[in-house]
């Protein structure tokens, strides 16, 4: 039993990391990873809401009828987000200012609604809480890693503390030279780092990525007309796989 419970938590951390493997909740990932403090606050706030809403929805799972389940979930999630919002505004105003509109956007964070739909309504309260914890921690981990990369390489600081050899100040404390790539703290850099992280995780992580790739076909991909892969003769691997799938189906005479 214990093994089972632990595996629920661990699954959310790496193997089914909501951001990097399931690719859910990308909006706060791109917006709130400019610096480590913002990422930390977002991760913790989302985790709290996720655990609480998972527990409540799991407790009510036999009462909520199927036809209105989505509105019910959203009302519950919105309630918890509002509570977190009010508490932050009262006791942690600096963090509240920094998170801005993205705090309220946790309501529509796909991770929370997704886990409620996929896990909480089919499992008991304790399991749901553990799943929420695991997914939330996975979210937090992904955010922290991405924020570290973006802040250190993009602004030369970590959690606001300057790193001495990236930002060089002269005797008077004026910045003389900064070896940073400011684009990383802005939107394009966010997309770049996110994309590279997904690529790396799928390459070195457990084989979930491979299976996903085999299931998608090039023809179905919306970028088929502009992507080089379908036309590239070197990529025999992908082309023959989809050929196989085609031959497996109906064939025109």
């Amino acid at each position: 039993m214990k093994n089972n419970k632990l595996s629920i938590v661990l699954r959310g951390l790496i193997a089914e990391n909501p951001v990097l493997v399931l690719v859910l909740g990308t909006c706060p990932t791109l917006a709130q990873t400019g610096n480590v403090i913002a990422a930390l606050s977002m991760g913790i706030a989302a985790t709290i809401v996720l655990v609480c809403s998972n527990m409540v929805i799991s407790a009510l799972r036999n009462i909520i009828p199927d036809t209105v389940r989505i509105p019910c979930y959203i009302v519950v999630i919105a309630g918890f987000v509002t509570v977190v919002q009010l508490v932050m505004q009262a006791y942690l105003p600096d963090l509240y200012e920094m998170m801005g509109v993205y705090l309220a956007l946790i309501v529509v964070n796909c991770i929370i609604l997704g886990r409620a739909e996929m896990f909480a309504r089919k499992n008991n309260v304790v399991d749901s809480a553990l799943d929420g914890l695991g997914m939330g921690l996975g979210f937090l981990l992904a955010l922290l890693v991405m924020a570290t990369i973006r802040e250190v390489l993009g602004a030369g600081t970590f959690a606001g503390i300057e790193i001495p050899f990236l930002i060089v100040r002269d005797a008077a404390g004026v910045v003389k030279n900064s070896f940073t790539l400011p684009i990383l703290t802005q939107a394009p850099g966010g997309f770049l780092v996110f994309g590279i992280m997904i690529a790396v995780i799928n390459k070195i992580g457990p084989k979930k990525g491979e299976e996903k790739r085999k299931n998608f076909s090039c023809e179905g991909c919306p970028s088929a007309t502009v992507c080089g892969r379908v036309a590239c003769p070197e990529n025999t691997e992908l082309v023959t796989e989809s050929d196989d799938r085609r031959d497996g189906g109906k064939e025109e005479a």
Partner: peptide, 23 residues
């Protein structure tokens, strides 16, 4: 990352130059 020569969606030198200009 897009597949090597022949598969890139934009001129690498132009994009590199714009990247440097923005950074």
């Amino acid at each position: 990352l897009f597949g090597g020569l022949g598969c890139n969606f934009a001129n690498p030198a132009v994009t590199g130059r714009i990247f440097i200009m923005i950074c």
